[in-house]
């Protein structure tokens, strides 16, 4: 199974929308890889630099409520995928973004508000996800384990490697 986890990027805001994750002007690209340089280009968050080494090195995003709202563009998931980010942890997600993540075999993990608060307070450098145990493991001086549950279908999609493979076998 794929490895889920690594260096963390903290996006401390609610309602980060798909236009901020990947602006519409890049939707004319016909390859996922071409999106790579433009991740979070229009994010409005004080102090955030889309091209900083910390942003580019991230493997996990931690955010707040309603992440990925707005457009249906799966480009908002692919731009993370091609930047080697395959986990987004938040308090809640917009439906289409969440479904697109699992459809691509990636993880959109919902944690309770208090756990998200604790993650923002401790800002661990690295987070690993244990899919079998259902644990988000924050490493470093403040090592801590946050349990999560996944819908069994979403888990099956991740195991299968996405909805296309799953659906092709089953329907």
């Amino acid at each position: 199974m794929k490895k889920f986890g690594g260096a963390c990027l903290f996006l401390d805001r609610n309602d980060i929308n798909t236009d901020e994750i990947i602006p519409a002007k890049y939707l004319t690209e016909n390859s996922k890889l071409a999106l790579k340089p433009f991740m979070l280009e229009d994010l409005s968050l004080p102090g955030f630099d889309p091209s900083s080494p910390a942003t580019r090195a991230a493997k996990v995003i931690v955010t707040r409520q309603n992440f990925g709202c707005g457009s249906s563009r799966e480009h908002a998931v692919w731009v993370f995928e091609v930047n080697d980010i395959n986990v987004v942890i938040g308090e809640s997600f917009a439906r289409i973004f969440r479904q697109n993540m699992f459809n691509c075999g990636m993880l959109a993990i919902e944690l309770p508000a208090a756990d998200i608060e604790a993650l923002f307070a401790s800002r661990p450098a690295e987070i690993m996800v244990d899919l079998v145990k259902g644990q988000v493991i924050a490493s470093g001086a403040t090592k801590k384990i946050y349990p999560f549950t996944l819908n069994s279908f979403d888990r099956d999609l991740v195991t299968a490697g996405g909805w296309l493979v799953y659906a092709d076998q089953k329907y």
Binding site: S72, R73, E74, V77, I96, Q99, N100, N103, C104, G162, W163, L164, A167, D168, Y171
Partner: peptide, 14 residues
Amino acid sequence: AGVGTTDLEVGILK
């Protein structure tokens, strides 16, 4: 319902 490209792809195929 609005869906992403993978859902659309499966919709087209299946």
